[in-house]
Amino acid sequence: MNIFRLTGDLSHLAAIIILLLKIWKTRSCAGISGKSQILFALVFTTRYLDLLTSFISFYNTIMKLIYIGCAYATVYLIYMKFKATYDGNHDSFRLEFLVVPVGGLACLVNHDFSFLEILWTFSIYLESVAILPQLFMISKTGEAETITTHYLFFLGLYRALYLFNWIWRFYFEGFFDMIAIVAGVVQTILYCDFFYLYVTKVLKGKKLSLPA
């Protein structure tokens, strides 16, 4: 464990909690892409099956359970409890355009053609594009609630911090995982446009609105 991975995990946890609280407190999931949340639930489910097979540490186990629990709670709030506030018309990204190519790639490019490894690889690739429906929805509505931009900021920051974690681990432990690194770079690049808008607008107290 190093400071980048710890702050990265805490940033990820903050994002997940911010989103859950936003929906619960405002009793509304307006502006939130349910499809992205489904993808995140799928990412955690396929990545954390090793909860059933190996114990790494209490921290590892507890964080995985929190991530999976919050992901499914968020999907439940969006599609069941506050379904009336779900903006399905603007959440129109075709999930099959992500899941199918990612599934194919995971079968072609992986470290080991075993069940758990293929699922882990699938989850790594899927996570790198899972935010696309959310970013697509914001580009369609042309705006985002400020609390939603904070959610996206911490979510994007977490994988950026993981990039530093991988530099750290390569330098100090000689450890690196090319699949996770490449997917992590792609994932972070997808946020660059949002990061620019977040720093230049939201941090200056303005509302995040895209030129329609």
Binding site: D9, H12, S54, I56, N60, M63, Y67, W120, Y162, A180
Partner: peptide, 10 residues
């Protein structure tokens, strides 16, 4: 050991 090591990230 390496397997456990390289899957210790969330």
């Amino acid at each position: 050991e390496t397997l456990k090591k390289d899957k210790d990230e969330l």
